[in-house]
């Protein structure tokens, strides 16, 4: 995390294209790793450093779309930029639906490639930041005792201390103690902040329900 240089992994079966695209990204200031096939990329992990992945659509063996699927299964959520020597509408639609940032048809100009890679890295940075915050909140939640967690859920649900006590079958005074401890551990100053923090880590379907 000490380096601010983003890392781009390039996967293309064509050696000449792979070398040249690698060089161009390097010249633009990125750390670049190149792989000549999907299998090569999957079996030699690039460390998952923040950045993005540039994938050739047509490759023997596992093609670009299949690699994108494999990455999703591995929960590698770095943004993907597709490059293709034979732009077909079906393939580009499938790639974009699966979450690709861009779909470039060869031969592409550096502005197109660097623009797409730049946007992908921006996206990765943003999601990396959001993920870091989420992990921090989750870590705080993890420090709560079972009873504190129960209190948290009921507080966020808008219950009063008296109601919580009745529900948990304890004294209101005890609930107040748990609540104070929970608020300190969650590092929030207000009920509103607690609610915001808590909902930010809920899965989207749960928060909308």
């Amino acid at each position: 995390m000490s380096s601010t240089q983003a890392c781009v992994s390039v996967i293309d079966d064509d050696a000449a294209v792979l070398r040249s695209v690698g060089r161009l990204l390097q010249a633009a200031g990125y750390a670049v790793q190149t792989f000549s096939s999907s299998q090569d990329f999957l079996t030699h992990p690039d460390g998952g450093a923040p950045g993005c992945i540039v994938i050739d659509l047509s490759m023997p063996g596992l093609n670009g779309l299949e690699l994108q699927e494999a990455l999703a299964r591995k929960a590698d959520c770095r943004p993907v930029v597709f490059i293709s020597g034979r732009g077909s509408i079906e393939a580009s639609v499938a790639a974009m639906k699966a979450g690709a940032v861009d779909f470039l048809t060869k031969p592409f100009d550096e502005r197109q490639l660097l623009g797409a890679v730049g946007a992908a890295i921006e996206l990765d940075r943003a999601s990396q930041g959001a993920q870091a915050e989420r992990r921090a909140i989750e870590a705080r939640v993890a420090t709560l005792t079972r009873r504190e967690h129960e209190v948290l859920v009921l507080v966020v649900a808008g219950k009063l201390n008296k109601q919580i006590a009745a529900e948990l079958g304890t004294a209101e005074k005890t609930v107040k103690v748990h609540r104070a401890r929970m608020t300190r551990k969650m590092q929030v100053d207000s009920l509103a902040e607690l609610v915001r923090t808590w909902t930010s880590i809920q899965p989207p379907s749960a928060s909308s329900a």
Partner: peptide
């Protein structure tokens, strides 16, 4: 379509190499 692919590969390599050299 396949032939276009075969021509686009070296064209991509040429363009990217030349632009890398410019950088």
């Amino acid at each position: 379509g396949g032939i276009a692919h075969e021509l686009n590969q070296p064209l991509t390599a040429i363009l990217s190499n030349a632009q890398a050299a410019q950088h």
